[in-house]
Design a protein around this nucleic acid. Structure first.
Lengths: 248, 248
DNA sequence: ACAAAAGTGTTCGTACTACACCCATGC
DNA sequence: GCATGGGTGTAGTACGAACACTTTTGT
């Protein structure tokens, strides 16, 4: 047994907009180390699974996996002292997204926490949550990732509220509709939502044209010549997805 | 000792433009498994280092690390059968970049290979190279990452050739200069390069204003209100950098 | 009628692209 | 002079942001 043996864990920052604020799922540790602190869902990588399979399995213990609409790798966290223990623990961190309308059954030790008001967190999990938030912010701007936060059908103003919560800055409902429609990200359902008790014109219901990730703005500048809109989609596998935003 | 013990390796796809084509550094395996096939530089994670430190240490054995101008995490590769052996091997893949003007001393078993004409590669290393290429392509469009491919000073047309090799599509030297100047990515040195043997106007020499990664186009759409140009830089750490491009 | 909410029309500014044209050098 | 390569000037256009205005409902 060489000295290089490690354990590998998978951790998921599951984000969703709850009560108008971006929140993440955490469970409270009962045992040392870091007893009482709040940790991300996850666990040890099993012998016959890759990290993608593992994170879905681990999430199934906390929430119904069918409610997780998008999962992607964020980064490896590997500081030698990041978790105390007999053997070193390396973590692959994931971003998971859950639509705003589902209220999954969660274990007693688990709860949603607004990112703006996190409780004391275990180990380096706060940094993982922050990286997940940055990833989400970035990808909302150049992909159709909104589908993963939104119910199956929604009004534009409801969608606007989701974008505001996730981006952290004001978003105009008018421009949101036009931008997403131009990219063929949104499609009208033809149905209407009834107005609230204080009146107002009934809102049209929309849905996302696709419910899987698609890059809508591949190039910021230096586009291939002749392409007016870069909105073409591109293939790829789970290992190679990534966003733009925060930087070393 | 539980069955979950793993080894962890670090692999780097070191990319550079050589002879006008995007190339990567590979070494030819002498021993099984995959003897004779070409592999990415890397090796086992040491007990007292994180993956970022490890990749720099491993690269030092192949090239002078001071010549590697940028390194960033790409993804974890974790298929249980990705590498045969007594214990499972998980890999953290990195992108490394080397300027086009340095010709580092490399070991006898190591050579540069054009991405367009790779030799038979070991394990899943071809997929890692492809992911690195996508990462580079994406980030060239919305960051100042060109600094990592370019010499310290260069003419616009030399820089254009680098972008063409890395992006794989034509780039106008005129527009490249204007786009990068507008973002304050390029700065003139005031010096001139002598023309070639066939004449022509002497070209002005430029340099990159910064030699560390900066996001120049954070938002494709849905910018924070009031910001005309998003070109402000943002903080962050190495763990959280990522690009946009290929997608699952 | 009035308030409230949704949606459309229109203007404005910016900036990327493309292309024509001018500049400086070698032969 | 002429070819070669570098650089600037200038449309053209597309599109995102902002804001005014209209539409449709409830009270």
């Amino acid at each position: 047994m060489s000295t290089t043996a490690t354990d590998h864990e998978v951790l998921a920052a599951v984000l969703a907009v709850r009560d108008g604020t971006l929140s993440t799922l955490l469970w409270q540790r009962a045992l040392p180390p870091d007893a009482g602190k709040w940790a991300l869902p996850g666990g040890r990588l099993g012998p016959d699974e890759d990290v993608e399979q593992s994170v879905l399995r681990q999430l199934a213990e906390k929430v119904d996996v069918r409610e997780v609409t998008h999962v992607e790798q964020i980064a490896v966290f590997s500081r030698p002292d990041r978790v105390p223990g007999p053997r070193r623990m390396i973590a692959t961190a994931f971003l998971g997204l859950v639509p705003s309308d589902v209220d999954p059954a969660i274990p007693a030790d688990t709860a949603w926490h607004p990112l703006s008001d996190l409780p004391p967190t275990a180990f380096d999990h706060a940094a993982i949550v922050e990286a997940a938030r940055e990833r989400l912010r970035a990808k909302l701007s150049y992909t159709n990732l909104g589908f993963a936060l939104a119910p199956r059908t929604f009004t534009i103003s409801a969608l606007r509220d989701l974008y505001v919560a996730a981006l952290g800055h004001p978003v105009s409902a008018t421009n949101l509709q036009r931008v997403l429609t131009r990219r063929a990200v949104l499609a009208p359902t033809g149905e209407l939502a009834p107005p609230g008790p204080s009146g107002g014109r009934p809102a049209a219901l929309f849905r996302f044209a696709e419910r899987s990730l698609r890059v809508t703005d591949a190039f910021a500048v230096l586009r291939p010549p002749g392409e007016t809109r870069p909105a073409k989609d591109s293939g790829g596998n789970m290992e190679s997805d990534e966003p733009r935003a925060a930087v070393p």
